[in-house]
């Protein structure tokens, strides 16, 4: 059927499809709303995933990348597994997250900061670091809730569930070389 695929027109739809493995299913959306109906965070979203897909089709790039939809997503994959058209909706949400972060279009959400703090720890130590996340990200972003977290943190600590120091993998240089190569390739 390759002969029937339309020529590239530089639309946002094409851009999203390109950036998402399996994204070509996006053109099959019949706007049924299974995704929006299934989403556990549906009530928090300014636009449901279905609406977002319609907006992608309408080439409304700016509004899509500024939407809060992606940041309310909890990666439960209900939208993906229920989609009657087999569209990888969760993966499309990830694509939009990456675009929004890269272009700094997000607002009123700490999710990008959390992602950054988390991945920075991975880049530095090769392991995640919960205490570091709590002190770094929370102190910076939400000092008040940090205080409420106090008793819980203490409980976790006394039960040996939280370490004060990060673990570092032995071959951290190897991992960093891999990550650097990935960053270099994806910058192209």
């Amino acid at each position: 059927m390759a002969a029937h695929i339309a020529e590239k027109k530089g639309t946002f739809l094409e851009e999203v499809i390109e950036a998402t493995p399996g994204g070509e299913r996006l053109v099959h959306c019949i706007q049924c709303g299974s995704c929006g109906g299934s989403c556990p965070s549906g009530a928090e979203m300014q636009y449901t995933p279905r609406t977002l897909i319609a907006m992608i089709g309408a080439n409304d790039r700016d509004a899509v990348l500024a939407a809060n939809t992606m940041w309310a997503c909890v990666s439960c994959y209900f939208c993906t597994s229920r989609c009657p058209q087999n569209i990888p909706i969760t993966d499309i949400i990830y694509t939009l997250k990456r675009m929004s972060i890269a272009e700094k279009r997000y607002h009123d959400t700490d999710a990008p900061a959390l992602a950054k703090t988390f991945t920075d720890f991975v880049d530095r130590y090769g392991r995640s670091f919960e205490f570091g996340l709590a002190t770094g990200y929370h102190l910076l972003k939400r000092p008040i809730s940090m205080m409420k977290m106090g008793p819980m943190g203490l409980q976790m600590f006394t039960r040996g569930r939280m370490a004060l120091r990060p673990t570092k993998i032995r071959q951290i240089e190897q991992l960093q070389a891999i990550i650097n190569k990935a960053k270099e390739l994806s910058a192209k």
Partner: peptide, 11 residues
């Protein structure tokens, strides 16, 4: 019955 009312864009 949980659904997105697609004409409202609301769950």
């Amino acid at each position: 019955v949980q659904v997105e009312d697609t004409l409202l864009g609301k769950q």
